[in-house]
Every structure is written in C-alpha cells, then in structure tokens.
Design a protein around this nucleic acid. Structure first.
Length: 702
RNA sequence: GGCCCGGUAGCUCAGUCGGUUAGAGCAGGGGACUCAUAAUCCCUUGGUCGGGGGUUCGAGUCCCUCCCGGGCUACCA
C-alpha cells in the first residue's frame, strides 16, 4: 500500500562540523534520518536526502593554522573521511556538499540581501578580546583566566565552573588566549545583527500552529525565548558577522566582515539541494519554494535554537519554504553514562567499523529511537543480546532453517494455507508504516519482531525436517518452506529501511529485489530459491570489547599532544613548567611507545640489584662487566655499555635497576644475562637509575 | 533557583479514551526438539506500577505533594 499520491520530500540531517571524525553519537542522527529516507523511498515517495560538511569558523581556521596547511586542504580531507564513514554505515545521501561551496556563497548573498531589504539588519560595535599574537579575535572558549567573582583560576571565558558566575571574557582577571598564551586586548569592531524581535509575531504563530515542532520543543521555545502570550520575552538581536580574520565568506556589503558560521551553515541545506538539482536538471524552486514539497530537518536537541527560531525567520524573510517538520532527537549515552573521550565511550564510526558490521548498530538504534527528544542508552550487553536474539535468532533463522529444503524445488506455485499468518503480517503494514512515518522506530521494531515471534512456532509445529524423510510429503515440505520464506521476506521488507543489506540479500536469495513497501502484501510463489548463504553474523562480545579497547587507546594517544598547548590554561602548572623549563628534545627523539596493558608490563621483571663487582673488559670500548647481586647469594653477570660514563670503582656497592628476565645474550666477551636500566642517548650521556634509600636487592619493581 | 522529561519484573522497555486477573523481550528455572549461526519451541518464577494524599463505582493512567534520576537554562520568565 503506497501512499495514494506520492509525496515530494526534502530531508536533511544537521551538517557535521569539519573539525573531527564522525562518532557513534553523530550516527544517531544520520541513521535516524537515513532510515526515514529509505522508508519514504520504499513507499514510493519522491525523497531527496541532502547534507554537507559545515566548514567555517574560527576552530577550523585555528586548526588549519596549527597543522600548517590551508583550510581548504583540511576540510577536503575531513570531508573525505566523513563521506566514507557514512557510506560504510550504509547512509545514503542524494547529495553531500560543503558549506564552503560557490553555491552556498551565492545563496548566502541572496538570503542576506533579502534580510537586509526587509530592514532586519543593524550594525553595532562589539567589544571582543583580540589575540595580538595570533592576530585574531577570540571566541569565548578560546579565552581562560581568573574568575572576577570568586577568584578561581583557569576558568572559561563565559562562566565560572567553580562559582557559576556569568561574565564576558573581557571581565576575566588575567585573561589568556588559549591559542598563543598571549594576554588578549579588548578591541571594538562593528558587527552585523539580525533583529529577530521584528519577527516575533511570525515566530510565535509558527511555533504555535505550524505543527512542525514536537510539543516539548514548542514549550521550550516559549519558555525560554518567546515568552507567554501575555508576557512575551524580547528576542535578542542575533550577531551574524565576525571580523577578519575568519574562515568563511566575506559579507559583500560589509567588507572585512564575514558571515558567522551559524548563518551560512543552514543555508548549506539549500546549497546542497542546489548541487543536486544541477546534477539532476531539476529546479531549486520545486524544492524550496513549493507547497508541494515537504521539508524535514533532523537534528539534535543541542542546536534546537538555531533551527527553530533563526532558521524559520531567515526562510520566511527570504520567501522560501518553511520546514514541514523539525525532528529533534536526544543524545546517546553509553552504558548509562554520558559519552566520554577519556573513558573511550565516544567511539568513532571508523573504530566501530574496524570490529563490527553496521547493521547491528542500525537495528539497535532503531529499536531505541522514538519520536521524542529523549536521550537513549547504548547498553553494550543489551546491544549484543538484542541484536543476536532478534535478528539472528528470530529473523534470519527463519530463512536459514527453511531455504535449503527448497533449493531444488523453488517455492510452491500457489501460496498455501498458512492459517492467516501472511495476511496478518500484511495487515500490520499500515501500523508499521505509521510508526516509521512518525519516527517511532522502536514501536515499528516491536511490531515487526512480533511477526517473527509468530513465524518461528509455525515452522516448529510443522516440522519440515521430519516430513522430509517421507518422500510422499515432498509437496507439504515445499509448502511449509514457501510459507516460512514468505514470512521471512515480509519481515525483511519491513526492516529494509533499517537493514538495507539484509533486504538486498533477501532479494538475491528469492530472485526478486526488494524495492517497494507493497511487496509485503503479496507472497512470492513459483520462483526458484538460490543457495542459502549466511545473512548476518552474530555480534560477538569479544569484538565489542576489542572495539571499546581500541577506542580507549585512541583517546589516550590523542590526549598527549593535545595537552601541551592546553597547559597554557592552568596558572600553577604553567609556572611550574616554566621553572624547570624542560625541553622537548627527548620526547621528540623517541616518541612515546604504543600503549600496553598492565599484563604486558608485568612481562618485564624489573629488580633492584647491587653492583658487587665492576671491571673493565679487555678490548671493549664501551662495555663494563658487572656482577650484580639479587641478595641471598644470587648473582648475575651483565655487560653494560656504560664505560664512558662511569668508572668501575664508582659503581661498586650501588643499587641499580636490573631487567632480570631478559633472555641471556652471547657477546664477544661472554654471556650477558639481563641488562641494567639507564636513560640517555649513550656515550658519555648515560644515566643509571637507582632506587631511593631503603630498597633492597632482589625487590621487584612494579 | 526555574523549566522540561523520566521513575512499571534482575535488565531494556510497552501500556490507547481511566475499565476485568499489569504486559513483551532478555536474563533465571523446568521441559521438548535437533531443520537452523548452542539457533528454535513449550511451560514457568518474578512487580505495593518511586512514596503519600485526593478525584472516581473504578487510577500505572487524572489532580496535589514529596523523594530520586536525567536534561536544558540561569538570578530572567
């Protein structure tokens, strides 16, 4: 049952920022959207899914600078990563663009002109901190200093994490730029503002009556920004420009000023549509200036503000279509906690893919997502059991237990009496479709699994494996498997938006591709059945474990270099570091080794040992021969390359660090058993390690 | 502090307009089966629906209040 008249739908996901990789939190949104888009296409609707990288702003500019490359270079590389991550998660965009595109620049200019013509633009001077060393204005988060209220040091530029006071970065005592460590100065520059308050009436009307927003979102907007009807709040002017230098588009009628990233980002939706239109020979007006086209935005609750006030305001002023629906989702937690880099729970898409197939995550998210703004939890144990039980145990099992019995005969010519199972499944299509339509995927998944729960007992009761032994029952076996496979196929169709690969494989198995929702209404009969192949692998807990470990390892790797500039933020630490002024050469010469686990460390048996003899070695330039005591009369013979740094007589009696279980090594002058630990590049610069007073020979170091 | 969302079985969650003995899946226990990726099927244990009060013939559901968790926001509603 397709919709009576095909709808035209333009669908967007929020634009990921070109400053980092896609992680499993982002994926909630792209998977939610992709499932919806696939559902719409399966239903026969005309649906176009556009997205783009969000590339502008100070953060990108700074990062490019730090990495010594151009912004264009940086954002091109990130875009490639993003696109391959999405593709490998089976997220299919009709167009994936960039906000740094000619189409976007042109459209920004067009919208800007309309907004200016409507009299909404005002100019005001803004005092902002300027980093004289980096030569750039500083966003609040690039400034840290001492809280003017409570005196806590190293606080962010907008509010104090200690006492909660709110202030401007200019009010900080001892402010410092986190970019250069320099003391910023206050500079004044003209900024362009959009007077949103002039659209107050329109926005209130839209929030109240358009039906585009979830209830809780409408409440939130009224509570925080619009105010109640009898007690309206004033909408603040929106600062939409940034002075140079800024990576973005220069405002044509305000030279030296650039559009703020949040001005050009949503316009990126239109620009991406434009690119798609150009490729398809379509007209942009049919998508952005047509009542016949629905516009659906999917985004996270963190950016509600931009998409539900500014964006409709901009669209309205520019004479473009308003969003039909803004689908706002909550955040992902992992094992009940906020995702955290340091805990490794903020798993990158690529890290996931290194260990697991995308379909389990697609299904798991679907089974948890509703049309509400609630957060939901990725419970790792639950993830494993749910996916394995539902998809492998129930759904795929239907095919895998019946397909091979009909490999030779194919499906029965006529659909047999199944006691109404297929018809009941067909009837469920309406309810399942309605759940998908309102993005209540968890409900859809429950309804679909209920079908699988009815199909398996059918196979159980009819025992094709037993009947098969009786040749006279061959037709009956074929009938039973025809039913089982059709029930399976019906489920695969319903799951196709979530599990596109399974749908493809099902199409291949039964010789008819799954392309339309209404294929669920008619059983397949009289067609051959291909050789059955595994349709899905179960999720092994060990792989999930390995993924989490890799994720944790990544977060540790990245932390070390990132912390170097970040120390500029901490007064006491900065002072301490300055006092000792240790240079970077040793670390540079020999970077930190790959992480190992404690068990790895334990493999090395480090012991305290006493040097009881130390002798020159005849004919050796660098070596001394040492006899080490581990106490209790246990001694070891070691050749150590420390001759140029230590005269033997100075060594006798002292304690050293001894690598006790190193495999003995035959040398020109004898066998060396283990080694003495020392640092330094070698030659005269060798520094033996010794334990503090009190250590005893033979003690293990750990 | 304000606002919003939650609290239902060990876990993850359904529960329509207030309507009979509160449901599912997983986990636990017992059994069956052996076609299927140790998959499947049948039976089964388990809940003062966060506490208290109220409205009602009847409350998981509506109202008040308190407690707990999460989110947003911040001296402004």
């Amino acid at each position: 049952m397709p919709d009576p008249t095909p709808r035209r739908l333009l669908v967007t996901s929020a634009l990921p920022y070109a400053n980092g990789p896609i992680h499993i939190g982002h994926l909630v949104e792209y998977l939610q959207t992709d499932i919806w888009v696939r559902f719409q296409k399966l239903r026969g609707n005309r649906c176009v899914y556009v997205c783009a990288d969000d590339t502008h702003g100070t953060a990108i500019m700074i990062r490019a600078r730090q990495e010594g490359r151009t912004e264009a270079d940086l954002i091109a590389a990130i875009k490639q990563e993003h696109e391959s991550d999405f593709a490998d998660f089976q997220i299919e965009f009709d167009n994936y663009g960039s906000t740094h595109s000619p189409e976007n620049e042109r459209l920004c200019g067009e919208l800007w002109a309309k907004i200016r013509a409507a009299g909404l633009v005002t100019e005001k001077n803004v005092e902002q901190l300027f980093d004289p060393q980096a030569g750039t204005f500083l966003a609040d988060r690039f400034v840290r200093g001492t809280c003017p209220q409570c005196g806590a040091t190293d606080q962010p530029g907008d509010n104090c994490s200690s006492c909660g006071a709110a202030y401007t970065p200019a009010e900080l005592i001892h402010p410092r730029s986190t970019l250069s460590g320099a003391t910023p100065e206050v500079r004044s520059a003209p900024h362009e503002f959009i007077a949103l308050e002039k659209l107050h009436g329109f926005l209130r009307e839209w929030v109240d009556t358009s039906g585009a927003l979830q209830n809780e979102i409408a409440n939130y907007l009224k509570g925080h920004f619009l105010g109640s009807k009898d007690k309206p709040l004033e909408l603040r002017d929106w600062d939409v420009s940034r002075p140079a230098p800024y990576f973005g588009f220069e405002i044509p009628d305000s030279p030296g000023n650039y559009w703020y990233v949040w001005f050009d980002a949503p316009i990126g939706y239109i620009a991406s549509t434009q690119q798609w239109c150009d490729k398809q020979g379509e007209s942009l007006d049919d998508w952005w200036r047509s009542d016949a086209c629905e516009i659906h935005h999917f985004l996270g609750k963190d950016i509600t503000y931009f998409h539900t006030l500014f964006w409709p305001g901009m669209l309205k002023t520019a004479g473009l279509s308003l969003p039909t629906k803004v689908h706002i989702h909550g955040f992902l937690t992992v094992d009940g906690e906020k995702m955290s880099k340091s805990k490794g729970t903020l798993v990158n898409a690529r890290t996931y893919l290194n260990h697991l197939d995308p379909q389990p995550l697609r299904y798991y998210y679907a089974s948890k997502l509703s049309s509400r703004v609630d957060d939901f939890d990725l419970t790792l144990d639950d993830f494993v059991t749910k996916v394995n039980t539902d998809l492998v145990g129930k759904v795929v099992n239907l095919a895998s237990r019946s397909a091979k019995f009909v490999e030779k005969t194919g499906l029965s010519a006529k659909y047999p009496d199944d006691g109404g199972l297929f018809a009941a499944g067909a009837a469920a299509a309406t309810e399942i479709a309605a759940a998908y339509e309102r993005t209540d995927y968890s409900q859809a998944m429950r309804l679909i699994m209920a079908l699988a729960d009815r199909a398996n007992p059918f196979v159980e009761e009819n025992k094709p494996w037993a009947l098969r032994k009786d040749l006279s029952q061959a037709d009956r076996v074929q009938d039973i498997c025809t039913i089982a496979l059709n029930l399976f196929r019906q489920i695969a169709i319903y799951l196709a938006p979530v599990l596109p690969r399974l749908a493809e494989q099902t199409g291949a198995l039964l010789g008819e591709p799954i392309t339309r929702w209404d294929q669920s209404q008619t059983p397949l009969v009289g067609t051959p059945v291909n050789k059955f192949q595994h349709l899905m692998q179960r999720v092994e807990p060990e792989k999930v474990q390995a993924m989490m470990e890799e994720s944790l390892a990544e977060s540790v790797d990245k932390k070390a270099p990132a912390e170097t500039p970040a120390t500029a933020g901490n007064d006491a630490l900065t002072a301490a570091l300055a006092k000792y002024n240790d240079g970077p050469e040793p670390l540079t010469a020999e970077p930190l080794a790959e992480e190992c686990v404690f068990d790895d460390f334990l493999k090395v048996d480090l012991r305290v040992a006493r040097v009881v003899e130390a002798n020159h070695v005849e004919g050796a330039d660098k070596l001394l021969q040492l006899t080490l005591s581990l106490g209790g009369g246990v001694t070891r013979n070691v050749f150590a390359g420390i001759k140029k740094a230590y005269p033997p007589e100075e060594l006798v009696g002292r304690l050293v660090m001894y690598v006790a279980n190193l495999a003995p090594r035959k040398m020109k002058f004898g066998i060396s058993t283990g080694m003495v630990a020392a640092s330094g590049p070698g030659g005269e610069e060798v520094f033996l390690l010794s334990p503090d007073e009190g250590a005893k020979p033979g003690q293990r170091v750990h």
